[in-house]
Design a protein around this nucleic acid. Structure first.
Lengths: 194, 194
DNA sequence: CTCATCATGTAAGGAGTTACATGATTGG
DNA sequence: CCAATCATGTAACTCCTTACATGATGAG
C-alpha cells in the first residue's frame, strides 16, 4: 500500500506524467522503492478515482494523451496522514538468510557461489545508494533540486538532512550484508579443510 | 516461491503435519521466514500434487485426518536444486526508508514517534533472534536437536555453524536498524532547536 | 463440562511480477 | 527514414494477508 504514498511524495513536489514518474522510480526514488510501469499507471488511475490526484490532460498528436497529475488537497492530507500513522511492519521473509541456515546441504563450491552472489548483489545496491548520497551532498540530484526550489529556507536543511539520513541507512545496510557474506566465505574456508 | 523450500527444509529433518509445520513457522524458522496456516495448508497440497511430498494419513476420530508429510526423492532433489540455484533478488521496497526520506513533511513529534516505533520493532526482532542464537549455541533448539540426531558426525559442525551464521546476520541487521534510528532521533533533536 | 490444544481448511482481496501490446514525436 | 524516447496501458499469474469457518481430543 506504500506505492501510493511513494507516488504522492514525488507528485507533491510538482505535477508529473505516469511516464515521468516511472523514470523517477527507475532512478532516484527507485533506490528506495521499486515499481514497474505496469503497476504505476493503474495505481494512478485508482488514486484519481479516490480523489487524491487530478490529471491535467494534454493532447499529443491525434490520439495520444499525456496526463500530468496534480496532487489534490485530499491527496496532500492522505500523504500527511500516512506519514503520521504507525508503519505496518511485516514479518521477516528473507530468502538469503533462509538459505544460509541450510548451507550444510550443499558443497563448499555451491556455498561460496551463493555468498559471492550475495556480495555482488549488495555491492551493486551499495554503489547506487552511495551515488545517490553524493548527489544529495552536492545538491546534484534533480528531484532534490526541484524540491528545494519550492521549499522555504527554514525547511531547506531538514529536507536535505532527512534524505541524507535515509540513504545513509541504506548504505549501512548494504555494507552489513557484504560484511556478513564475507565472513560467510571465511567460514566456508574453515569448515571444508583442503 | 521460497515458502515451498522453507517447508522442504523443515520436512527433510523428519515428517510433520501441517499443524506441526505451522508451529515451527511461528517459532524457530518463523524468525527467518514467516507464514500463516492459511498459506501452509494449500502449499502442502500443491507440493503433494507436484510430487515433492507424500502424506502419511492418520485417522483421528470419525472425520479428522492428520497428514504427516514425508519428503519424496523428487522433493529432496527440488530442495537441493533450489539451494544450488542463484537466488532471485528483488528490488528494494522499504517503507521505513521511504518515510525517512520525507520526514520534513511532519513535525518533530511525528518524526520521533516514527523513529521510536522503528527502534521498538527492531528491538523485538533482535530479542527473538538473539534468543535463537543462544538456543543454537547451547544446542537447546528442538529443531536443531532433531536435525543433529539424523546428521552424521562429519556434518555436525557445519550444521551448527551455518545456523549460527544465519542468525548472526539477522542480529547484526537488527542492530544496524536500531543504531540508524537512534541517530535519526539525534538528528531530529538537532534540526528542531528548542 | 469446559478450555486449551490439535487439526484442517476456504474465500476474498491486495500487492507485485512478467509478458505482451500499441502508437506518437523528435533528433540525427 | 530510422532509432530513441515519449507515452499509455492490459492480461495472466503468483504470492501473501485477513477474515472466516469447523470440528476432535485430552486434561483438569
Amino acid at each position: 500500500m506504500s506505492l501510493r504514498y511513494a507516488l504522492l511524495a514525488i507528485l507533491r513536489v510538482g505535477p508529473l506524467s505516469g511516464y515521468d514518474l516511472q523514470k523517477q522510480f527507475s532512478q532516484s526514488v527507485g533506490h528506495v522503492w521499486h515499481a514497474p510501469d505496469s503497476q504505476i499507471y493503474p495505481e494512478l488511475r485508482k488514486m484519481h478515482h479516490d480523489g487524491l490526484i487530478e490529471p491535467e490532460e494534454q493532447v499529443r498528436g491525434e490520439r495520444g494523451t499525456r496526463r500530468l497529475y496534480h496532487v489534490t488537497d485530499a491527496g496532500e492530507e492522505a500523504f500527511l496522514a500516512w506519514m503520521r500513522s504507525p508503519l505496518p511492519y511485516q514479518r521477516v521473509r528473507d530468502p538469503a538468510h533462509l538459505r544460509a541456515a541450510y548451507l550444510e546441504a550443499v558443497d563448499a563450491g555451491d556455498a561460496r557461489r551463493f555468498l559471492e552472489g550475495h556480495i555482488a548483489e549488495w555491492e551493486s545496491e551499495l554503489e547506487q545508494w552511495e551515488g545517490e548520497l553524493r548527489h544529495i551532498e552536492h545538491l546534484s540530484n534533480p528531484m532534490l533540486v526541484r524540491r528545494l526550489a519550492v521549499t522555504p529556507d527554514s525547511e531547506r536543511e531538514r529536507t536535505i538532512e532527512y534524505k541524507r539520513f535515509a540513504y545513509e541507512g541504506l548504505v549501512e545496510r548494504a555494507r552489513g550484508e557484504i560484511d556478513w557474506a564475507r565472513r560467510g566465505l571465511a567460514l566456508v574456508d574453515r569448515l571444508y579443510p583442503s
